[in-house]
Design a protein around this nucleic acid. Sequence first.
DNA 1: GTGGTAATGTTGACTGCGCAAGCAAACGTA
DNA 2: TACGTTTGCTTGCGCAGTCAACATTACCAC
Lengths: 142, 142
Amino acid sequence: MRLKASDAAMTRAFNASLVAEHGLTVNDFEVLRRLSLEAEGRMRRVDLAQVVSLTPSGITRLLDGLEQAGLVCKDVCTEDARVTYARITPEGRSTLLAAAESHLVALEEIFAERFSSEEVEALGELLGRLPGAADGDAQCVG
Amino acid sequence: MRLKASDAAMTRAFNASLVAEHGLTVNDFEVLRRLSLEAEGRMRRVDLAQVVSLTPSGITRLLDGLEQAGLVCKDVCTEDARVTYARITPEGRSTLLAAAESHLVALEEIFAERFSSEEVEALGELLGRLPGAADGDAQCVG
DNA sequence: GTGGTAATGTTGACTGCGCAAGCAAACGTA
DNA sequence: TACGTTTGCTTGCGCAGTCAACATTACCAC
């Protein structure tokens, strides 16, 4: 199986180019992507943590970085003073788009050149059964 | 797809129990397992790095830990003074066996309860096409 | 109200690991 | 023989992310 090993190598490769070209880690990218798909481009930090499989503290630090870079900002929640939203900024959206252009294309290539679309589908379905694979999975960056 | 996310969560879970029960990380385990499958239970460090998808420095540090724990030791190479082998010790083998008992069973359970054996096979084949998925993949722990 | 428990988020200490740089041995080529 | 290049491995430094502990706020009993 070697799920871990193959993934590690691949993730590293993607990370390297993302970092080099846009200063984003794969997780940064994924966070921006998830935020961009939300209504109002924002999410509670806990929920964000869950969808990208990080701990709350991990999300805090990741968002610290994105915030310093001006790609996300905090929103307060009026109904619950404990929660703070992470919201993607316009700059966040534009660097997401820029990064997506190369990153998603690279990803697409990797898969296109070794799987048929049915196989991609099958692979996605199988992996989706794994614990932690949670839920929905919108593909685009629109 | 969420290859990364699901894997991260799963790896973390496995890691936690391995560490708690045997003081091994998933990578420690995998290294011991690979070594145990080799003739004379040893491997050059570079090769080991490759099969577990670590960099040479990563392997150095990982083996440092295993060596301190007495689970592996160094062997010199008589033909090439640059290389040093990592060899699994008898203690290494016994803790590997102990860890395998719970770890492999846990792994087996995860898969058995959500995939048929054909599906496991299919999944393995598909993932095997990914870059970094290299090669052979003996499943047992000797 | 007052107490107890749960949920959200942050911080400090730590770990695993990559990268860049270095050293030593080996392998050219001349 | 000498010199440049490659290969194997280690070390210094930094980063991402975990865990444990904590502070707030919310919810729920009474």
